[in-house]
Design a protein around this nucleic acid. Structure first.
Lengths: 188, 188
DNA sequence: GGACAAAAGCAAATAATTTGCGTTAGTGGA
DNA sequence: TCCACTAACGCAAATTATTTGCTTTTGTCC
């Protein structure tokens, strides 16, 4: 009597999951988050509340699951020119997305539960995107920060601001990058 | 018919707040957090549940309030020797505290609500402690990072790891500091 | 096709939350 | 000191959410 982590695609279980996720996304975009309840989600998804309770446990777990899914990137970072430029463009949109109202809510949802699986998922997505950029730099022969340097000195300060302070400005983001990229003195 | 932000000390309202906070702290230390409910907290604090609902709204808000209070530092950072050493000692204990089970729970509580007041409070506590260290460095004539540098390149990476990854090790923390302190090449 | 098990539905029981209304306890003025 | 005032609390009924035992459905593997 346990629930599979990855329901077989096309099965009933997968359909229920999709319907519930969709229902949550719809409701979060049309109504106040405080009014989103499991009975309402269940009604819109055409399932019984007990199905959701048994599968996710409570509203926070469900919201964390949905948020982690939504934080998964669509594709690889855009190719602008140099790896340096690609990095700047990608980080800027990352910062914007995270600092937006929806972005902040999703991060909070992911962090608000004790289980760290979803948080690690999100951090993994970010690191994967950065690795793609690092590989490009290597291909182009550009000097580039390591993954650890990028995580510590670019991503972390952005996330700290998003979570504890106000939104990081575009100038601030560019400055972090300029400081992290080796031998970069060309800008700001 | 609104609740004052800062109840007058000694009044009934202040007594209720103290009793409820104490009750929450006791319960968090003796039982599983999933079993902590408002009716139980109310019972232990000798108040009615409706009092708590009216004053805090829901469990998350109450937990966030209690957590933010507990994250307030006891006093100024210890004086070891140089400002550099004081910084290292303080940051190490900060990282340990945040990475501990209780610390992580408190941070998550603070971040899990939409209202950012409590999160800003916590960030403010940290910045205040760092300012004390900066003032010491100035007094001693030591080269020292600015507040922004410390927040971006020492505190932020630590918090990111605590929230999204695994606990930051002592070595890792020392390395962040060594990198942030100007002209420091003496260690790791 | 039939046996099996995972996951969903249903409905009753329990628990949490909201709310209207009456009461209490600090506060400030005469 | 007493009185009026009001923020905040208590109480209890009404509502809503959550849990749980049992039944039914659905997909999978012989």
């Amino acid at each position: 009597m346990g629930y599979r982590e990855n329901p077989r695609p096309g099965g009933r279980s997968a359909r229920v999951q999709a319907a519930v996720h969709q229902s949550v996304r719809d409701m979060l975009s049309t109504m106040d988050r405080a009014d989103v309840t499991i009975p309402l989600i269940a009604q819109r998804a055409n399932v019984t509340p007990s199905t959701i309770y048994r599968r996710w446990g409570d509203l926070q777990e469900l919201l964390a699951d949905v948020a982690a899914s939504r934080l998964q990137p669509d594709g690889a970072p855009a190719k602008i020119g140099s790896a340096r430029d690609d990095l700047e463009a990608w980080v800027e949109q990352y910062a914007d997305e995270m600092a937006s109202g929806v972005g902040r809510e999703m991060i909070r949802d992911v962090l608000s539960i004790a289980d760290t699986t979803n948080a690690e998922r999100c951090s993994g997505y970010t690191q994967h995107q950065l690795c793609v950029l690092i590989a490009r730099a290597e291909e182009y022969g550009e000097a580039f920060p390591t993954l650890a340097e990028l995580m510590d000195h670019v991503i972390s300060p952005i996330m700290y601001r998003v979570l504890f302070d106000q939104a990081p400005s575009a100038d601030y983001v560019r400055e972090l990058i300029a400081r992290a990229v080796p031998g970069d003195t060309s800008r700001t």
